[in-house]
């Protein structure tokens, strides 16, 4: 295992070192110490390696991730795993606003709560939150799955496209064009796999599914101001 002291060596060197790892690298296990809430830790990775961040991170940790597993042993600031393509990002604590925003693929697991705008404009990422999520989550979410074991805040799934939203607790309010939908066997099957992947102690039958009513897809004069 390689250990990198961020306080001593700095962010540019950290990210350059991680970017230099190729698909055939032998250095597949990294530990980053002294993150101290720094921004842009482990962004743009593109190799099958595991990066453990020993503390809390600031803005944009693990953004644009491909292939790598980034595990934050603390909480994450705004924009964690933004625009992730593949791989896995795990947050042991809470995540701040717009976690997993615009993500195209991979899995984001948040073991605490996520703040507002979680999964905004998600495009294929799977986001699994053990706790609650804040307001305006999954706004304009296009595809992928958002699983919430706790409660959701105001305006969940506003202007939603085809992402699937599963919430176990209460939803404070649904956004425009987001409705509750029937849980069919294929959804139970999908959710069983997602909960197992996220390490969640929850039963798929306890969840409700929300999705798009598909009423905003085409222009209607009634929707104009």
């Amino acid at each position: 295992m390689q250990t990198f002291d961020l306080a001593a060596e700095g962010l540019r060197k950290l990210n350059a070192t991680l970017h230099a790892q190729t698909a055939s690298t032998n250095q597949t296990s990294w530990e980053i110490v002294n993150p101290k809430g720094s921004h842009a830790i482990a962004v743009g990775l593109d190799a099958p390696m595991e990066v453990n961040v020993k503390g809390s991170t600031g803005y944009y940790c693990a953004g644009m991730n491909k292939q790598a597993t980034v595990h934050v042993h603390g909480s994450a600031g705004p924009g964690v795993a933004e625009n992730m393509m593949s791989g896995t990002v795990i947050i042991d604590g809470d995540a701040s606003q717009y976690a997993g925003a615009t993500g195209h693929g991979g899995t984001l697991i948040i073991k605490g709560n996520a703040s507002s705008r979680c999964g905004i404009s998600m495009k294929g990422i799977d986001i699994i939150v053990h706790g609650n999520i804040g307001h305006m989550s999954a706004f304009m979410a296009q595809s992928g799955n958002l699983v919430v074991c706790g409660d959701a805040g105001d305006a969940l799934g506003d202007s939603l496209y085809e992402a699937r939203l599963f919430v176990r607790g209460n939803v404070k309010s649904l956004g425009a064009d987001c409705i509750e939908k029937e849980m069919r066997p294929e959804h139970i099957e999908l959710l069983t796999e997602l909960l197992a992947r996220g390490g969640c102690d929850a039963k798929p039958e306890e969840f409700k599914r929300y999705g798009s009513a598909r009423q905003l897809y085409n222009f209607k004069p009634d929707n104009a101001y």
Binding site: K36, G37, S38, S56, G58, Y59, S75, G77, G93, D94, S96, S115, S116, G134, H135
Partner: peptide, 22 residues
């Protein structure tokens, strides 16, 4: 405004850290 501002406070590792609600 950011967690960075708090990292050198005594006992921050064991503090209750949260975001104030809107």
């Amino acid at each position: 405004s950011e967690y960075r501002a708090l990292v050198n406070l005594p006992g921050i590792e064991d503090a209750r850290v949260w975001e104030p609600e809107p």
